[in-house]
Design a protein around this nucleic acid. Structure first.
Lengths: 183, 183
DNA sequence: AAAAACGTTAAATAAATTTTTAATAAAGTT
DNA sequence: AACTTTATTAAAAATTTATTTAACGTTTTT
């Protein structure tokens, strides 16, 4: 291999590394560990990888790769791929950011709506019981009513969030906001 | 205070705590510390609070409240309020989840677009240089072109994300997805 | 059937983050 | 101007989280 060929290869690696660094840095805002963030960003430029290739590439332990890959599978940013004739499992990064976006945020927002709505429904029942309780003083009733109304108001947001998730899942949002802008 | 009045007060507190717990639990997915998450959820049911009230309510140190409140201000989930005649600073939680949503995600997505687009532009320049380099072998040129195209494709997503942020900031998204659903 | 290869789980270590105690700075009052 | 009150910064301690080493179980190969 000639001098300049080697130099070009290095240039390519350096260019990739710039992007890998940026992706990894923004990814830990997504609640994944640094190892998982680096792994995803690295896989973004590969067809597919085995655990051993990951370990070699990132210089980390195999269990670390194993847990990172599982976490990335959970948020659907990595998929298992089938490679005939190989005993080693192979994995590929989801390279379509639209799909990653959908999977990640829909999952996150679903969880948020579910958890908070459950708590809200329970709490509202409790407030109603206090309001209906004949021994409650007017002051207590007013308080309970105030909190009940505040929660009722917040449901508007959770319903909206549910609709947002639905329109992302169905793809309807892309009618409103097309992927390719024509400006 | 009568027996039943006390019981009602407890019922109200327990009901609030259910919601506080749920909000705090989903909030640490938003990259805030447990202290900040608990604090916001607690403030959600209060008009406004001073640092000393926060410390008393959560049973934590004052510097912890100070840093938590600052973090919450950064993501615009808490605002400083002016209270005449009081030397103590007072703070209020943003109770409109739509506004919290907008502030948080727009900030997050802006940062992501900015960081990654900067890296992409730089890397693409590097790839172009390798492609234009007359000493590059056909194989290297093909590689550089492949990566260049992959990055070019990803820009579609970042542009879309920018548009999403813009439509949230302008409120245009609520024309597509109304806050109050009529189903 | 034994040995090797591969992936995962468990326990231990290491690293990073969060929280607190103590000290400092800033603002207000007497 | 000295003394309080309040908030913030700095250093230390504690907790949590991430990572590694070691052990285990499973599958495949010889």
């Amino acid at each position: 291999m000639s001098e300049s060929t080697a130099r070009s290869r290095i240039k390519i690696e350096e260019a990739k590394d710039k992007v890998i660094g940026a992706i990894a840095e923004t990814m830990d805002l997504y609640g994944v560990t640094p190892a998982a963030a680096n792994l995803y960003a690295t896989m973004y430029f590969k067809e597919q990888m085995t655990l051993d290739e990951m370990r070699a590439e990132l210089g980390m332990s195999k269990p670390s790769m194993s847990t990172s890959v599982r976490k990335l599978q959970e948020i659907e940013m990595v998929k298992k791929t089938f490679t005939r004739g190989s005993r080693k499992h192979t994995y590929a990064a989801e390279k379509n950011f639209f799909r990653s976006f959908m999977a990640f945020y829909c999952q996150m927002w679903d969880r948020e709506v579910k958890m908070n709505m459950e708590a809200i429904e329970e709490a509202q029942e409790d407030f109603i019981n206090v309001i209906k309780d004949s021994t409650s003083t007017p002051e207590i009733v007013a308080d309970a009513k105030k909190y009940y109304d505040q929660l009722e108001e917040s449901k508007v947001y959770y319903h909206w969030l549910e609709e947002l998730v639905a329109s992302i899942r169905s793809g309807k949002i892309f009618e409103f906001l097309p992927k390719e802008q024509q400006d």
